[in-house]
């Protein structure tokens, strides 16, 4: 292998959001629950590793966006592939995406890069939980191409969550480490983090339980926080989404948040004038204050620290939800800005 002699650097790409039409070129089932969808955008643009696109979907009389990582793309950007997992708790986007057929047209953004890979670190661990591989696979390909020292860790509850196992095994050989829950080879996060040294960078995309476990182990080991890189679209929680009631006494609002909508969306529909920006649990602008809580909070954001989450006093309403440990339906009473 070529000695690693690349200069340090991260990709710079435009953060501008450019909406355009894309044509579905192909849609194939990789596993019973995951489809790979190849798109041809009308305005091709190169997708760097770690990029995602936003897709605008129509739900009855309203539209909403979903974010999907670009798994791979043509070098000139003329086609790009995403992969979509359908779960019983999907908010409805996966069903629409799975129904796409070649020739269909959908509205997407040009690739957006919020999760850039830095070239030049001495060592890398790439950690993908299930469908999280979509953000990670491109990074592994780049690190292989520059001869970097990397390990790709790919895990799922079962093999049907590991849609890209075959091709990643072929591409990365002994650098690939696989953990499958129902085969008794689950990842022990503390062991993974214990083996990481100060100069290594870890790139992580996966469910929130995995992210929280890695982050906790990382902080406990006092590893440099800037070396833990992750991306979340705010769509996974510690618990399955359930219906709950939200009340805003000052505005006389009481509404039910359905399983396929966010608290922010429900409040907007109920007529509240809501502030927000990222809609993926990062920025904190959609914060609401909890006045009363019957039930518990499923914090799905990465804005609050563990201390703040445990205090249950504030919620990022764009992603986080109320839940009822007894299953009888939670109610949260809040004040908004």
């Amino acid at each position: 292998m070529r000695p690693f002699r690349w200069a340090d650097g991260t990709v710079a790409t435009s953060h501008s959001i450019v909406w355009q039409q894309a044509t579905v070129v192909d849609s194939i089932a990789l596993t019973p629950v995951i489809r790979r969808i190849v798109l041809r955008p009308e305005k091709p643009s190169v997708a760097a590793a770690g990029s995602h696109i936003d897709v605008r979907l129509r739900f009855g009389d309203r539209t909403d966006t979903r974010s999907y990582s670009v798994v791979d793309s043509a070098t000139d950007g003329t086609t790009l592939a995403i992969s979509v997992l359908a779960t019983p708790t999907s908010r409805g986007g996966a069903a629409i995406m799975h129904a796409l057929e070649p020739g269909d047209s959908i509205e997407i953004t040009q690739p957006i890069l919020d999760f850039p890979l830095r070239i030049g670190a001495p060592r890398y661990v790439l950690l993908a939980g299930g469908i999280g591989i979509t953000a990670i696979a491109g990074m592994a390909a780049v690190l292989k191409s520059v001869g970097a020292d990397y390990t790709l860790v790919y895990l799922g509850r079962s093999r049907r969550e590991l849609a890209y196992l075959e091709e990643l095994t072929a591409a990365h050989g002994s650098r690939l480490e696989v953990h499958v829950g129902d085969e008794g080879t689950s990842l022990v996060v503390t062991e993974l983090v214990a083996a990481i040294d100060e100069s290594a960078e870890l790139y992580l995309c996966g469910p929130i339980r995995l992210m929280d476990a890695v982050r906790r182990a990382w902080i406990e080991r006092e590893l440099p926080i800037a070396n833990l890189r992750f991306e979340t679209f705010g769509n996974s929680g510690w618990f399955a989404p359930e219906k709950f009631t939200v009340r805003v006494p000052r505005l006389g609002i009481e509404t039910v948040v359905g399983t396929s909508q966010s608290m922010l969306e429900a409040l907007e529909e109920a007529g509240a004038d809501m502030m927000f920006d990222c809609r993926k649990g990062e920025c904190g602008l959609c914060e609401v204050r909890v006045l009363e809580l019957d039930g518990d909070i499923d914090h799905r954001d990465v804005f609050y620290s563990e201390r703040q989450k445990n205090a249950r006093g504030k919620i990022c309403c764009c992603v986080s939800r109320a839940m009822s440990p007894s299953g009888s339906g939670a109610t949260v009473t809040i004040e908004i800005s």
């Binding site: 979340t232 990222c278 904190g284 990465v302 201390r307």
Partner: peptide, 17 residues
């Protein structure tokens, strides 16, 4: 002004020789 760091908050770092 906050206890955590937004994971998207990066600026490009260009390779230098």
């Amino acid at each position: 002004a906050q206890e955590t760091i937004n994971p998207s908050a990066t600026v490009a770092s260009f390779p230098v020789v």
